[in-house]
């Protein structure tokens, strides 16, 4: 598991990029944490730079939206989903488990 940051450092609506083998973006949606691949499947935008809208993030470059729970993409130009990763909160710290799909992910 990779430690990300204290829960207090990631307020609702915000995202943080975690450097792993493949970078991961961790989001806070109204107190729930989600982790997906940080790199957009269209080009190389960092999804942590995107805009969080409900349970989706809009890519900062060309506006494809990815569901934070499932990784699914809503529409062009991206065509393929992003991977999801399990998030664990322990003693006020957020951790991600790279390679382990989030519960409920497709």
């Amino acid at each position: 598991m990779i430690p990300v940051c204290p829960t207090t450092a990631l307020p609702p609506g915000e995202a943080i990029r975690v450097d792993a083998d493949e970078p991961i973006a961790v989001f806070n949606v109204d107190g729930d944490f989600y982790a997906i691949d940080d790199t957009c499947t269209h080009q190389d935008a960092s999804l942590a730079d995107g805009w969080v809208d409900g349970c989706a993030v809009e890519c900062p470059l060309h506006a494809s939206c990815f569901d934070l729970r499932t990784g699914k993409v809503s529409g062009p130009p991206a065509k393929t989903p992003v991977g999801t990763h399990r998030v664990v909160v322990q003693d006020g710290t957020i951790y991600v488990q790279p390679g382990t799909a989030a519960d409920g992910a497709a």
């Binding site: 935008a45 960092s46 730079d49 995107g50 805009w51 809009e58 900062p60």
Partner: peptide, 10 residues
């Protein structure tokens, strides 16, 4: 400046 730009656009 994609991050900041996105916030301003929104």
């Amino acid at each position: 400046q994609p991050r900041l730009f996105t916030r301003w656009r929104r």
